[in-house]
Structures are given as structure tokens and as C-alpha cells.
């Protein structure tokens, strides 16, 4: 479990770093997919099988493909992101903010001894059937709200993307 954690964490952080630093947009998306895979592996390691599969299905199968489509549709077929951004004031400020955030979170976690002493629960996975029952039981209201949200997002995305075409005619 130890080695698995460190290896997967390394892959995850590497994927995340490459995703925001590479110059070629398509390479960024491919690194992002590596990152998503790492996160999914973490979920499997944490015995959340269902979430892991959902992560792969939604993030790699849908979100990453959507981003690839967006890159191709913005006439940026080779994926080159234009001239390299200069390491200027903005870059330093951004990195400083990020480093401070990371430091703050680490400090908070370290300072709170509870996080260090907690032990994992018994090694049992939540059955998928329980999640299904949860959706139509306790969690019915958020579930329906999610359905409305996704429908609205679907229609909204179509309307936004189609707008200019309609004006042009």
C-alpha cells in the first residue's frame, strides 16, 4: 500500500505539473489524462471502486475528449499555444500565491494532529447497490437537482456554441 501510494502520487503530481506547464495544448491534455488516471488509481486504492470507474468514464471519456474537441475547433490543429509566456511579474506572483497556498494547506494539516492519527476504516467497499438506493432514497432531492443542472448545462452549452452561427445568417 505504501509503495502504491508514493508511485501513484508521483504520477499524479507529474501529470498535473506537465498539464499546466507544457507548451503544446494537446500535450497538456494528454498529461491531464495521465493525472486523471492517477486520481482514479487513488480512488481504487481507497476502495472507492465505483468513483474510480466514474472518474475514468467521465473525466477521460468525456471531459478530456471535450477539451480535445475544443482545441481542434479553435483552429489550433497543431496545438501550439503561441509564443512562450515570459517569466514576468505575473508568473512570479502566480507561483508565489500557489506556493503559499500549498504551504498553508500543509501547515494546517500538520498542525491538526487528528489527521495524522486517524486510521482507515474496515476494509469494506460500499456496494454499488447501496449507492443506487442512496440516489432514490436519502439523496433524491440533490439527485433530481443534478438532473436539472445537467439538462440546463446541455441546453446552455448548445445555445452558447450556436449563437454566432445564428447571427451570421
Amino acid at each position: 500500500m505504501d509503495y502504491a501510494f508514493w508511485t501513484i502520487s508521483g504520477i499524479t503530481v507529474l501529470g498535473a505539473l506537465l498539464a499546466v506547464t507544457l507548451r503544446n495544448l494537446v500535450h497538456c491534455v494528454l498529461s491531464l489524462i495521465l493525472f486523471f488516471l492517477g486520481i482514479a488509481a487513488h480512488y481504487f486504492l481507497l476502495r472507492a471502486d465505483f468513483i474510480g470507474a466514474v472518474q475514468i468514464l467521465i473525466y477521460i471519456g468525456a471531459v478530456a475528449v471535450l477539451i480535445l474537441f475544443a482545441i481542434m475547433l479553435t483552429r489550433n490543429v497543431t496545438g501550439e499555444a503561441g509564443p512562450q509566456e515570459v517569466v514576468g511579474v505575473k508568473w512570479w506572483i502566480g507561483s508565489l500565491c500557489a506556493a503559499l497556498t500549498a504551504g498553508l494547506i500543509s501547515f494546517a494539516v500538520r498542525a491538526d494532529s487528528v489527521a495524522e492519527t486517524l486510521s482507515p476504516g474496515p476494509k469494506a467497499t460500499v456496494a454499488v447497490a447501496d449507492i443506487g438506493k442512496g440516489f432514490v432514497g436519502n439523496w433524491i432531492v440533490p439527485f433530481e437537482a443534478m438532473a436539472v443542472l445537467l439538462t440546463a448545462a446541455l441546453i446552455g452549452a448548445v445555445v452558447i456554441a450556436l449563437e454566432e452561427v445564428r447571427n451570421r445568417r
Binding site: 501510494f5 503530481v13 498535473a16 499546466v20 502566480g94 497556498t101 494547506i105 494539516v109 500538520r110 486517524l118
Partner: peptide, 22 residues
């Protein structure tokens, strides 16, 4: 321990933040 996961998530969050800002 749980803290490792929290710090990992914090690092990823910071990377994302840096990317969004720069």
C-alpha cells in the same frame, strides 16, 4: 495516514491555482 492524502490534494490544488493564474 490521512494527512498524506490531504497534503497531496493541497499540492495538486496549488498546481492548478498556479496554472490558472499564470
Amino acid at each position: 495516514p490521512l494527512g498524506h492524502y490531504l497534503i497531496l490534494a493541497g499540492i495538486i490544488f496549488a498546481i492548478g491555482l498556479a496554472g490558472a493564474l499564470t
